[in-house]
């Protein structure tokens, strides 16, 4: 850094710190006296149960979206045109409409009438399972596109070389294409997984009592403000930061490799 840049950097730092300090003082000054962290402690059990459910739904949706993503990838590379077109149409629909609509429509119009009774009879929580399924489909649609982009970015010479050494079509994907494609799309996949974790909060609209839903209830009942929102943000950060770190770490490792 040149001397001028150093001065500019220092000045910017002071300005930013000042701005943030002013904002915090203004906000905290407004609700200072009413903030009571004991409220959050009172509701700890419901918050913990909600957070734990969010963790489970997120993990389930990650795995589910991998399964659907691979299926959509295969569908789009299928030799049958009808399968390719149907896949394309479905992906386009999912990607161009809001998740909130999928959840409301998918739950209340499609799956609840079909599956709620049998799932409940079998002792499952239908909302969680159907919500997780819808979230997986949504994530899978994006993952399918990411994977397709990755697979199609591998140069022709690699496909040819893999065929030339005698690999079967499955082996070509398994040993040559996927390892290279995954490296390229890793940041995009990590971004998608972080989004999925955050989007699981939308399951509250169909009444799944996950972290966001329980926090909202806690806030409504106790008239909490900051005591509700700060743990809410922290709870999601605890889930998303490891994914982001892991992806940065993997990215760095692979970059050195190639």
């Amino acid at each position: 850094m040149s001397r001028r840049q150093q001065i500019a950097n220092a000045l910017t730092a002071v300005a930013l710190a000042g701005g943030i300090a002013w904002l915090c003082t203004a906000v905290l000054g407004n609700l200072g006296r009413e903030t009571d962290w004991a409220k959050a402690w009172q509701y700890r059990e419901s918050l913990w149960i909600g957070w734990w459910l969010t963790l489970k739904i997120s993990l389930g949706a990650l795995l589910g979206s991998i399964v659907f993503g691979l299926l959509f990838l295969l569908g789009q590379r299928s030799p049958l045109p009808v399968l390719r077109r149907t896949c394309r149409l479905f992906l386009e629909f999912v990607r161009d409409t809001p998740l909130l609509v999928h959840l409301l429509f998918g739950y209340f119009v499609i799956f609840a009438p079909l599956l709620s009774r049998p799932l409940a009879d079998a002792g499952f929580e239908d909302k969680i399972l159907i919500g997780g399924l819808l979230l997986s489909l949504f994530g899978g649609a994006y993952l399918g596109e990411i994977l397709r982009g990755g697979v199609e970015s591998i140069p022709r010479a690699q496909w040819e070389s893999a065929r030339a050494v005698g690999f079967s079509p499955v082996q070509v994907y398994r040993h040559v294409i996927f390892p290279q494609a995954l490296r390229r799309v890793l940041p995009a996949i990590a971004g998608l997984f972080v989004s999925l974790i955050k989007d699981s909060s939308l399951l509250s609209v169909i009444g799944v009592s996950e972290y966001f839903y329980n926090t909202k209830n806690f806030i409504a009942r106790s008239y909490a403000g900051l005591e509700g929102y700060v743990p809410l943000a922290l709870g999601y950060l605890i889930l998303t930061l490891p994914v982001a770190w892991l992806s940065h770490w993997l990215e760095k490792r692979f970059r050195h490799e190639t």
């Binding site: 140069p155 010479a157 690699q158 070389s161 030339a164 050494v165 040559v176 290279q180 490296r183 190639t258």
Partner: peptide, 12 residues
């Protein structure tokens, strides 16, 4: 065995 002009090896 088959060898192309270039990019024969698997880079990973």
């Amino acid at each position: 065995g088959f060898l192309f002009q270039q990019f024969n090896l698997f880079p990973h």
